[in-house]
Amino acid sequence: MSTVMVAKKARRKWENLPGKNTFCCDGRVMMARQKGVFYLTLFLIVGTCALFFVFECPYLAVNLSPAIPAVGAVLFLFVVAMLFRTSFSDPGVLPRALPEEATFIEMEIEAANGNVPPGQRPPPRIRNVQINNQIVKLKYCYTCKIFRPPRASHCSICDNCVDRFDHHCPWVGNCVGKRNYRYFYLFTLSLSLLTIFIFAFDIVHMVMRSVDSGFVVVCFFTLWSVVGLTGFHTYLISLNQTTNEDIKGSWSGKNRVQNPYSHRNLIKNCCEVLCGPVHPSVLDRRGLTLEGLSGSANPTAAIKHVSKNKNPEVQPMKTKAEHSPEEHAPGFTKHDITPSTAGITSLEKSPASSEKEVESPTPKDLPPQSPSDNTNSNQDKENTY
């Protein structure tokens, strides 16, 4: 009789995650699917610094100070490190609801809203929570089937809900959210310092040699854009706001609603955004999931396959001792047979003794015995049992 065994294969959770993200290095690197602008950003940074180190630094190191190339190299490495940290990390993606959770939430919403007459628009799916004595609305995401936490929003490019969503930045090839915003700000700040450093010493080089260079014009426009971006995000950090909230006017405008997340203090707001703890990822993208696979009709091969995978869920096969004739012998019950290994081994080693016990004559065939003989026979039976 052939048996069918079911084995389970372990896979990483990032392989089954929804959304439009790209994963590399076995789920350690998480980026958006559109990464072309990120490569352009990396090329511009590396190319500009390469021109500076090749054409400017040799003259400046000899005539001014050899510390100029060293400081430029440190700034360059820090900029690249912050760029990779922002681009390759989880920005704070929220997991989608499971089918059972989505069904339960839909039932709760229908019970709260009641039956909507046909032709009428159902009321918006909103929940109210209180934060710092102020009511904040939690909106329902029809894609992720969850009520988004405060300050979270759904990114249409990555197709994920991101906690404390700031914006989707194509220059870094990723969303900017709760888990990588500080690294994004440090990237823009260090890039501004690097641009100022290159621009300043390029002018010094021109003055010392009294030549004109078009490289200064390129550095000027780069400096203007990067410093402006850094100043804008410094303003947002001082108010504890996000770019999404500033564009939508969530805490300004006609309603005059105050920002419930602001501490009304510049230093406290900056410390919360830049110096607070880094929240762990809730995706567990490198965790393991088990997927069922149809097994072989050969039980020996299936057991070998499962033993290699060390699967503890396989049921042990019955041995011959469990089907021995003693299980159905008169005077025995299921509780009389112990499943110990020693008992099974002794039964397998002495089959003759078990046959003698089964084939022993009944009391009807024996001649009448005296009371003393009966006592001895009872003791022998107890010893046998």
Rank of each mutant, 00 (worst) to 15 (best):
S340I: 04
S340T: 15
K318W: 10
P325Y: 08
Q315L: 12
K320G: 12
E326M: 15
A321F: 15
A321H: 07
H328N: 08
A329W: 02
D336I: 09
E327F: 13
K334H: 07
K318Y: 03
P330S: 05
S340Q: 03
H335P: 00
P316R: 06
G331F: 07
T319R: 11
H323D: 09
T338K: 12
P316M: 08
F332P: 00
K310F: 15
P339E: 12
P312A: 02
P325V: 13
S324A: 14
V314R: 01
T338W: 08
N311L: 14
E313Y: 14
H323P: 00
P339Q: 07
F332M: 15
V314I: 15
K320W: 09
P325L: 13
H335G: 04
D336C: 15
K310L: 13
E327M: 15
A329K: 13
Q315E: 13
Q315A: 12
A321K: 00
P339A: 04
P325C: 05
P330R: 06
H323F: 14
K320L: 15
E326V: 13
T338R: 11
H323A: 09
H335R: 09
P312Q: 03
T338S: 15
I337Q: 01
K334T: 11
S324D: 05
H328A: 10
V314T: 02
P339K: 08
T333H: 09
M317W: 07
S324E: 05
A321T: 11
P316N: 01
H335Y: 13
P330F: 12
T333G: 15
K310E: 11
M317Q: 09
S324Y: 04
G331V: 10
S324C: 08
E326H: 08
T333L: 14
E313T: 09
F332E: 05
T338N: 04
S324G: 03
V314F: 06
M317T: 05
A321I: 06
T319E: 01
H328W: 10
P339H: 11
P316W: 06
D336L: 09
F332N: 10
S324T: 06
H335I: 15
E313F: 09
P339I: 06
H323Q: 11
I337W: 13
E326P: 00
K318D: 03
T319W: 03
T333N: 10
H335E: 14
A321W: 09
S324H: 13
I337M: 15
A329C: 10
F332V: 15
K310N: 12
H335K: 13
E327T: 12
F332R: 09
S324P: 00
K334W: 08
S324R: 09
E326G: 11
Q315D: 08
S340E: 07
T319S: 06
E313P: 00
S340C: 14
K310A: 14
G331L: 12
P312F: 03
G331K: 02
T319C: 09
F332C: 08
E327V: 14
N311I: 04
I337H: 12
K334C: 01
H328Y: 13
H328E: 11
K320Y: 02
K318M: 02
S340G: 14
P316V: 05
M317D: 05
